[in-house]
Design a protein around this nucleic acid. Structure first.
Lengths: 116, 116
DNA sequence: CGGCAAGATTGATGAATGTCGATATCTGAA
DNA sequence: TTCAGATATCGACATTCATCAATCTTGCCG
């Protein structure tokens, strides 16, 4: 195990790095990855963009199916993923379901990057 | 080469914009999704976190295999994805390969979110 | 030269994902 | 109540992905 820099293995009680947490925990990484997974699809990014620019800040599924050139079940599936990631919110009025950006969600996601 | 039609109706304040660009293009969405795909894995997020906090801002593969509990080929594979996404840079010195954060890459990625 | 260590690449495999067609659920109107 | 439209859910399929074992490439040093 030749290491280029002599790294003392696991003798904690060290003087010089008191809270040297080496990285975010596996659980925290898993949680953050869920949000980025929701953003890791072109059609979902376009959905966010369309909803953000939509009149009134909200759009229903029928307005989203055509510009993406996707079937209605597929759009509904993507919207569900975005809602579960905390990026979109859903409000049903009558027969229609209106989706809108969760306030501050984009800023919080950017914070997940900065605090890596 | 400059097209005279490249003026966009940006500052026409009160008048409505009839040709409202509905969203980012499919190609742009695809390009941005590549970056978020690189972030959509817990182990890659931990890799970024470890490299960011590493002494000197860089770490070699041998330092990354153990904390992630992954095999060396798998770590190498993840690092390649992060390099191709423009988040990490690779510098080979001797037998060792040192990875470090690309300056400003995290901020640029946050900008991809804000400009949706 | 030969051997060795670090890291990258290849091939294979099981799991996760995006998409669609068919169907179910729910709501307003006749 | 019955019908029609909007949306959600289910089942299936093809593709992508994460991981590992084995192998290859490269650079160091005896």
């Amino acid at each position: 195990m030749s290491s280029p820099q002599t790294l003392e293995p696991a003798v904690d009680a060290d003087c010089c790095a008191p809270t040297q947490k080496p990285a975010i925990s596996a659980g925290e990484a898993h949680h953050r990855a869920l949000v980025f997974k929701a953003l890791a699809d072109p059609n979902r990014l376009r959905l966010l963009s369309i909803v953000k620019r939509a009149d009134g800040g909200e759009a229903c599924v029928c307005d989203l199916t055509e510009p993406l050139d996707l079937g209605q079940p597929t759009v509904s599936h993507h919207l569900k993923i975005l809602v579960e990631a905390g990026l979109l919110s859903r409000e049903k009025r009558g027969t229609w379901a209106y989706y809108s950006l969760v306030p501050g969600a984009v800023e919080r996601t950017a914070g997940l990057l900065a605090s890596l």
